[in-house]
């Protein structure tokens, strides 16, 4: 997907002043070249400029663009930020672009971080952002964790087995339905089944109920 596809979806829903802002967002004041600090400023401002109210964008429209989002995250701010990141990729050398993505994440608030994580699978050579994606799994901020763990093909495509297993177990821990983890069936492995069975055993020893999703990972877990 390119930035223009996404902008094409977004622009008709914006007023002319916001459209104009978005078209220039991230460019230096003197010309059209992308300027890193102007970009970071625009990336933050996108929340207020574009709005956080979910759009009624149908699932298949987004899927056509290669983007899968839970309905409550389909906001103009998130779509706009994904578009900004995609547009920046077209304008920067790989090295400068990687630094920009890292900066967007590092100094980003929760909404900015969600947008970065949703963009990762759409980029050229997504594997270069593996460290960032794995780091995101360590967050305690649930919407940020869900941005990488749910409706996102990145982990199944690029995570090594141990990191993928940790992500799946953390999803169960935090009550995320495993149906939202993309590619789970394909990446399922015996170590993950062992971890799920151990977790079920720990819950039983503590006199607690066993999450039903554990049976998806280890058929005997709920017994």
């Amino acid at each position: 997907m390119t930035a223009s596809h996404l902008l094409g979806l977004l622009e008709p829903r914006l007023d002319p002043a916001t459209r104009e802002w978005l078209s220039r967002a991230g460019a230096s004041s003197s010309g059209n070249a992308l300027d890193a600090s102007a970009f970071l400023e625009a990336f933050a401002m996108a929340g207020r400029r574009l709005g956080q109210k979910p759009l009624g964008t149908p699932e298949d429209t987004l899927a056509g663009l290669g983007l899968s989002l839970a309905p409550d995250t389909r906001t103009p701010a998130l779509l706009g930020r994904v578009a900004l990141l995609l547009r920046a990729q077209e304008r920067l050398e790989p090295e400068g672009y990687e630094a920009l993505v890292a900066a967007c994440y590092r100094s980003g608030d929760n909404g900015e971080r969600q947008a970065v994580l949703k963009t990762l699978p759409l980029l050229h050579h997504p594997e270069r952002f593996l460290a960032l994606a794995r780091d995101a799994c360590r967050t305690h901020v649930q919407p940020v964790f869900e941005a990488i763990a749910c409706e996102n093909p990145y982990p199944a495509a690029y995570f090594p087995e141990s990191a993928f297993n940790q992500l799946v177990l953390k999803a169960v821990f935090t009550g995320v339905p495993l149906a939202r983890v993309v590619g789970l069936e394909r990446r399922h492995n015996s170590e993950l089944a062992r971890m799920a069975a151990d977790y079920a055993s720990e819950r039983r020893a503590a006199g607690r109920d066993v999450p039903t999703d554990l049976t998806l990972l280890s058929p005997g877990a709920s017994a």
Binding site: Q166, L169, K170, F173, M195, D198, Y199, E202
Partner: peptide
């Protein structure tokens, strides 16, 4: 000790 996969 880890919260996930605690026994192992």
């Amino acid at each position: 000790t880890p919260h996930r996969d605690k026994k192992r």
